[in-house]
Amino acid sequence: MRLDKAVSQVTDLSRAEVKRAARAGRITVNDDVVTDPSSKVADSDLLCLDGEPLAEPGPRYFMLHKPLGYVSATKDSEHPTVLDLLDEPNKQKLHIAGRLDIDTTGLVLLTDDGQWSHKVTSPRHHCDKVYYAHLAEQIDDGAVEKFAKGIWLENEKKRTKPARLEILYANEVRITISEGRYHQVKRMFAALGNRVLELHRERIGDIALDEDLEPGDYRPLSADEIASIQ
């Protein structure tokens, strides 16, 4: 692999910035200064920038408290993205395990571990998602049984999987689902003639949103949190 590509993959530097750093004598390969950014390097070579060893980071796992107005995407031409909230090297390599709508807040998981991400999002792994919802209208007790049986969504060929609905107050509920259909929670309530005014994800599997995280804040997941997704 070319030196400039190898260094850019493990730093925040662009290829152009790596080239300038190499020509300035800031990069060494196996303790030898290499000024030609097109030089070939092997995986076993020790690369250093300003004397600091460079290495491909291991898998990374973060939880983020998503605020309103941010989209769950790596880039967007009209809105800020959740990646804009991160101060991490090579954050463009992270992807979102379980997206939220622009007007939904709460727990978002980000990782560069594709297999782990798949376990979060695939219905086959039964990773429950828990939401708080504030509704436009009062909801009756009969909705609990309807959610437990599954809801027919508009333009869908089968019911949703059974969901757990807990009525907190007249128009405030907590709902647990194991799927991730398009706008699923909002559409489930719409099917009952109601409308979601506010939606907030509290939990994914056994990973709960850290109460100490303000909207827009994030932190790495603990080893136990990572291991809880199986």
Rank of each mutant, 00 (worst) to 15 (best):
P80F: 04
L221N: 03
F62P: 03
E145G: 14
L85F: 13
Q9M: 12
G142Y: 00
L165A: 03
I207P: 03
A227W: 00
K5W: 11
K66A: 01
K75Y: 14
S72W: 03
T111W: 04
T35F: 02
T176R: 07
A16V: 08
T11K: 00
K19Q: 15
C127T: 12
H183Q: 12
R219C: 13
Y169T: 15
Y132C: 00
A148T: 11
V196Q: 03
K146N: 00
I175G: 03
I229W: 03
I96S: 03
L168N: 10
C48I: 02
R195T: 14
S178L: 00
D212S: 14
E166G: 00
H125P: 05
H126S: 10
D50H: 06
D140R: 02
D212R: 15
K93G: 07
E137L: 12
M188E: 04
T11S: 08
R124T: 06
H118E: 15
L197R: 14
S228M: 10
T81I: 06
D45E: 03
G114H: 11
A136P: 01
G193A: 06
Q138H: 09
E198F: 14
D113I: 05
V10G: 01
A73I: 10
G25Q: 08
I207L: 12
A21V: 08
G142V: 00
L209Y: 06
A148V: 07
A223L: 15
N194T: 10
R201C: 09
G114A: 13
V34I: 15
K40E: 15
D206F: 05
G106A: 10
D217K: 10
